[in-house]
Amino acid sequence: MKVSLFITCISDALFPPIGEAMTRLLARYGVKLHFPEVQTCCGQPAFNSGYWDEARASAKTILEAFEDSDFVIAPSGSCTGMIHHYYPKLFENDPILLEKSLQLQEKIFEFSQFLVQVLGVTDVGAVFPHKVTYHPSCHGTRLLGIKEEPMLLMSHVKGMELVPLPYAEDCCGFGGTFAIKMSNISGAMVEEKSQHVLETEAEVLVGLDMGCLLNIGGNLKFQGKPVRVMHLAELLYEGVKLK
């Protein structure tokens, strides 16, 4: 049973603690994670901008990395969604890689999906006595249908006060290259999202996607607001360590 970690380029370069949290948390269930090092990036930045040849070059490393894995876990609804939703399109003219894409589709799970759907775990035994609000990333919720899983996991965290985020389903404005290309519009969207986060008076903003959290967190920091921004894996692991 080979369970592999697809760390995603953002978490690899910018947020190593997330990978660590996932590794340690899953180890408690006897899940030994593998890390096939040929993985680089799912290719979404190039794909979404319309550069599909370039996206394919990157995506091929993902197909290669997880060819012989039974399960693949990624701390990102966006990257997981890219594979589920767009890899078959990206490789539609390459029968071999198309087949690999379809196989990968079946084995790849976003982190909270893996815990709940695959391991059947909803209570990791975490204690996290803080006021927390949750941002549901667009690709995760709309492309992958991830709605219940994070809520189930968070509902079992002891001592945590989960405050609903107003207009939670509104996009944070990241959209990958959109944030650079249409920076004025993206800026307006992230300012609005930050405003809603601040309205909750939460100490911690938690989410499933580092693209979104990099965006919202970056804006909150820009505004000098001390809200702590965490990936759900980090929060759960810290909650387990605290015990």
């Binding site: 760390i7 978490s11 690899d12 370069a13 910018l14 947020f15 190593p16 997330i18 990978g19 660590e20 590794t23 994670l33 890390f35 090092e37 944030a179 650079i180 290309k181 920076s183 993206s186 800026g187 992230v190 300012e191 990099l214 965006n215 967190g217 970056g218 804006n219 920091k221 820009f222």
Partner: peptide
Amino acid sequence: KGWTAYRHIPALPTRSFREQWKALS
């Protein structure tokens, strides 16, 4: 500019996740 006009970028940690993997695993 497009990014930093609205956000701060965190510094890249001195070691990426994959650099830490061997020791961690």
